[in-house]
Amino acid sequence: MAILEVQNIHKSFGRTEVLKGISFSLEKGNVLSIIGSSGSGKTTLLRCINFLETADTGRITVDGDVIFDSDTQAKLSPREKRDKQLKIGLVFQQFNLFPQYNVLDNVTLAPRLRAKEREDYKKNKKQINAEIEEKAKALLEKMGLSDKLQNYPCELSGGQQQRVSIARAMALEPKILFFDEPTSALDPELTGEILKVIRELAEEHMTMVIVTHEMNFAKDVSDHIVFMDHGVIAEEGRAEDLFNNPQSERLKAFLNNYD
């Protein structure tokens, strides 16, 4: 069964319809890349799935649990919304690290606050926080940042900041990790280190949805590709098929721009 199911998402800003009925699904452990020209609605789609925008209609299911349903959304308490939100994680184009916290604290802040809601928190406080810190350190080591734990975001390169933000998102153990153009804010020579990290996550079968303009990367790393155009999915399919044998004129034109 699919771990992510997105059904019939519509979203308008004022009178502009930006998403015109988006549906797709994703298998556990797979990587899906979303490609498409600028303005086609990729960011809006990710923002709707991550609750940063509220879709006008549609339904989103993660691991069998409905996290969004436009019919019942208004009835959810903030607490319920947060619980659903935490099934998925989002990595921003602009990193959005918290500037006043060092690298380690950026990663542990949310898990620590989250842990306070546990029933056994008072009793096992020390142990819980120690575990959170251990896990954060392990994640940061994986990101190659073990020697930066005490540094502040302003002391890091863009690539290092983005790796911290990936660790920060993963610290909450989301079932699916979303990336919105994770390399677009980086100098070209720094994009490689981020793509490498994402590749490693893919090898470990992290379920991911990646909006990207790096076509070669998308082709390599993805199991499935969705091509968006003017608020609809114009074409989708297995990565090799879609790149080697595009069907629609729009996708052909789009891919030609990258050769």
Binding site: N50, F51, L52, P78, R82, Q85, L86, G89, L90, F92, Q94, N96, L97, F98, L109, A110, L113, R114, S165, R168, A169, L172
Partner: peptide, 20 residues
């Protein structure tokens, strides 16, 4: 972006104000 990052990390409104 600071508010949005806080939101997707599951922080409440008041945690976002006081901690971030």
């Amino acid at each position: 972006g600071q508010h949005e990052a806080s939101q997707v990390l599951g922080l409440t409104k008041s945690q976002t104000f006081f901690r971030v």
